[in-house]
């Protein structure tokens, strides 16, 4: 009698961006592969800094631990690499907007990146700036398949993002970025992450508008009332996951 294949153990590790993903799964907008066993773990933004890699596992303390337990629902206090085949960092304070904004503006002003080597070096520095990325690096080192779904671009049309001091007020050139420019930057980030055994999954092109923003159609519920440019709708999460799920399958097959 054929034995049941081992489930593909997937853990989403992230911040409040996981909320929309959770809704998308509940509402059937996206579905995990049939062989997948999915868990969530993480904490919201300000508590995220209470999560660290220590003694071979991801550990949370205080408020972050409370949140991780609530989010996980299975009593998992630590995230141990051996417990998962794939860890998908979701949001996780990895704000690619902070890389795309100034670089796209630079490209708009000068017509090019300074050089591919300079872009690569910048990308390496940028990824290493983020706490979650450093945790991701440890998990990859420990043998996990690590995917990174960054915090998405700000949502268009929620606040006056072109105003002085706001995102496009500071980097107006970013609004004129083309898909080729974005691809160049995603490529540099992907290359930097690949050196650490991490796969960055770019924000789908069809969700992007005005150079480096997310289409308003993907705004979260009450985004306008709350001035929330960061969070997105379940449909947005579902769209991104179309690109993410196959990467978990590929790993499962390889294993």
């Amino acid at each position: 009698m054929p034995s049941q294949p081992d489930p593909n153990r997937i853990c989403f590790f992230g911040d409040s961006q996981m909320g929309s993903l959770r809704h998308a799964l509940r509402d059937g907008l996206t579905e995990a592969p049939t062989d997948a066993h999915v868990e969530f773990w993480g904490a919201t933004g300000p508590s995220f800094r209470l999560i660290e890699w220590r003694d071979g596992a991801v550990r949370a303390k205080d408020r972050a631990l409370e949140m991780a337990l609530t989010i996980n629902g299975n009593g998992r206090e630590t995230l141990v690499p051996a417990d998962f085949d794939t860890v998908i960092f979701y949001g996780a304070r990895f704000r690619v907007t902070e890389f795309f904004g100034p670089y796209l503006h630079w490209i708009d002003e000068t017509g090019q990146v300074p050089s591919s080597a300079v872009l690569r070096a910048s990308a390496r520095t940028f990824v290493a700036f983020t706490r979650a990325y450093r945790i991701a690096r440890e998990l990859a080192k420990a043998g996990c398949n690590v995917l990174f779904v960054p915090a998405p671009f700000y949502t268009d049309g929620i606040t006056d993002i072109d105003r002085q001091g706001r995102f496009l007020g500071i980097y107006p050139g970013a609004a004129r970025a083309t898909a080729d420019h974005r691809a160049l930057l995603w490529g540099a980030l992907a290359e930097a992450a690949a050196q650490d055994g991490i796969t960055i999954v770019p924000q789908p092109e069809d969700t992007v508008t005005r150079g480096a923003l997310t289409h308003n159609v993907f705004a979260s519920v009450e985004a306008a009332e709350q001035g929330d440019t960061g969070h997105k709708s379940p449909a947005f999460a579902a769209r991104w996951m179309q690109d993410v799920w196959p990467l978990t399958q590929a790993r499962a097959k390889a294993a």
């Binding site: 409040s16 902070e98 904004g101 929330d228 440019t229 960061g230």
Partner: peptide
Amino acid sequence: AAVVPKGEEDIKCEEELLNAFAA
């Protein structure tokens, strides 16, 4: 330094997440 205003996505992020995972 190159800056991007932070904090926009921190708005209501706790309720965003915890509501989603509420039993």
